[in-house]
Design a protein around this nucleic acid. Structure first.
Lengths: 175, 175
DNA sequence: GTCTATACTTCGATAGAC
DNA sequence: GTCTATCGAAGTATAGAC
């Protein structure tokens, strides 16, 4: 068997996330998702019976990706802090996209999305605190990561932000 | 003359912001805004001829509030850093609401909203850098503020986050 | 498993009465 | 300055052919 084709189902979730991230939740309509995935609306609704199911499919995938990310962070060569900061700036990965997309949904008052994001953050924080042995430092670094992420998703990206953060963390003997 | 009544125009902008913040951009429809402000849709459209004008009215108000905020930050008794951090956690003020609302609009790919937010951030950053005389520190503190703000708007508020940040900043001789 | 056709609802906006 | 009535476009969802 040749390299497994990306399933229609996955392409639909990708399209949904892409639209949420690049154009916002108002633009992420079923029509637009179907068009982006190059499927008809009927085709979409075969895989996901409603928009709500589309959200659920997306969040399920996010949780899987999230668990893998926390595991990678725990054993990262350069240490959890550097891994965490480096992946807080948008690298354009599938995981980044899923994360930002979930953020958009959370803002529409969706408790499932908020819960998924909160769980993820808790995973990151646990690793940071274990590694640093210092709650204040762990919380502060998590906030810096949130800030980097926020700036990215709001189109406010400051080119050298990470460089400045690293300089400050060195003064604190963290890096 | 008695205390000036809040104008219908202002009530409409308030309603628009409230809906954006509490329910997201998909829920902030003209119908919903009119209902929230207790005006008919026709009444709304007398003051704002289109949804776009509603956005513009909101951003104009935000810029005014923003200038006042930066001025207050510059001369704050406890210093700009403490002022900036304290106002980065949502205090429920009108300015907070306007800020979050603009963030929602910015995410719908609206360049006017992004520009307004970028200008505001630049104002804060300028004061931080002047006061600290250190770009890395200023950038890092701004990121922490972004993180505090982000957590608030995503419903991830960590009660004692500010306490931990203050502890770390003391180690850096900032507070 | 994917398509077209269509029903129903909601959205943004206009027209005109009061 | 505010209201009701209404229109056309776009949104979600269903039914049924292929």
């Amino acid at each position: 068997m040749a390299a497994t084709e990306r399933s229609t189902r996955d392409r639909l979730l990708d399209a949904f996330e892409t639209l949420l991230v690049t154009a916002g939740s108002r633009a992420a309509t079923l029509d637009a998702v179907a068009a982006e995935a190059e499927v008809s609306k009927g085709g979409l609704l075969y895989h996901f019976h409603s928009k709500d199911e589309l959200v659920e499919g997306m969040l399920t995938r996010l949780r899987e990706q999230g668990e893998a990310d926390v595991a990678k962070m725990r054993t990262a060569k350069k240490g959890p802090v550097e891994f965490y900061l480096a992946t807080s700036v948008n690298t354009g990965s599938n995981f980044d996209r899923a994360l930002v997309a979930a953020g958009r949904i959370a803002q529409e008052n969706d408790s499932r999305a908020s819960a998924a994001l909160a769980d993820l953050r808790e995973g990151w924080f646990t690793v940071l605190r274990e590694h640093l042995g210092d709650e204040s430092l762990a919380r502060t670094i998590q906030l810096i990561g949130d800030g980097l992420y926020f700036d990215d998703t709001t189109g406010l990206t400051e080119k050298n932000a990470l460089k400045h953060v690293r300089a400050v963390l060195k003064r604190l003997d963290v890096l």
